[in-house]
């Protein structure tokens, strides 16, 4: 395996194809989360009042802070793609590192938020939750599934961006071939966009 697909060596580097593949993957991600939003829509229609009541347990300040953190990380992600295009390796690395740090911050804040919920006894199957109505149970069920899967996506994103950082450092990604970094950026923005929908649906419906 010292020569991966040698027969392709004469094919030129196809950045467009690489990005097309990523877009197709993002479509599948949209369907993946889309089904959860569908469930949310149905259950919120059925338990409208209970969803409002349950949302009172959410800390809007922390939610807003996390939204700001993730949006800022997306900005630095876009800046790092811009920097690699100009061939400014050092700057790309700095921007990308900031993105990663902000991504980790998001996860840390999110886990403190979850811990606070747990301390209030609001975890799946908890006695406190079971005393509440069906709508509240659904709200928290959806909350944990949706923010949990979103959190896993942020985690994967941080891992991918860290690999990108290494690839940039070793010169595998440079201003001639940076579709991989652009793809990582596309993925990061998607994760960001999903959060932008999650935030109002769980925090701002009081």
């Amino acid at each position: 395996m010292n020569e991966p697909f040698p027969h392709l060596r004469d094919q030129v580097y196809d950045g467009t194809g690489v990005k097309l593949g990523m877009w197709l993957f993002l479509f599948s991600e949209i369907m993946f989360f889309g089904m959860l939003f569908l469930l949310y829509a149905v259950y919120r229609t059925r338990h409208d009042a209970a969803f409002h009541a349950a949302a009172l347990n959410m800390d809007t300040a922390i939610g807003t802070l996390n939204t700001a953190v993730l949006l800022t990380s997306s900005l630095f992600m876009a800046l790092s793609v811009h920097a690699i295009r100009d061939g400014r390796k050092r700057l790309t690395e700095i921007f990308l590192s900031i993105t990663i740090v902000l991504g980790i911050s998001f996860l840390v804040i999110k886990s403190f938020e979850w811990l606070a919920h747990f301390q209030h006894g609001l975890y799946p199957g908890s006695p406190v939750l079971l005393r509440l109505g069906k709508g509240e149970i659904m709200f928290f069920g959806l909350y944990y599934v949706m923010t949990g899967l979103h959190g896993i996506h942020v985690f994967i994103g941080v891992a991918v961006l860290s690999v990108m950082l290494v690839l940039i450092h070793t010169g595998k990604i440079d201003k001639t071939r940076f579709a991989a970094l652009e793809n990582a950026g596309l993925y990061w923005h998607l994760v960001d966009i999903i959060w932008i929908f999650l935030f109002p649906l769980f925090y701002l419906i009081k």
Partner: peptide, 11 residues
């Protein structure tokens, strides 16, 4: 976390 359980409001 059982989102399809009628007992907890699911369908």
């Amino acid at each position: 976390i059982y989102l399809f359980d009628p007992a907890s409001g699911g369908d």
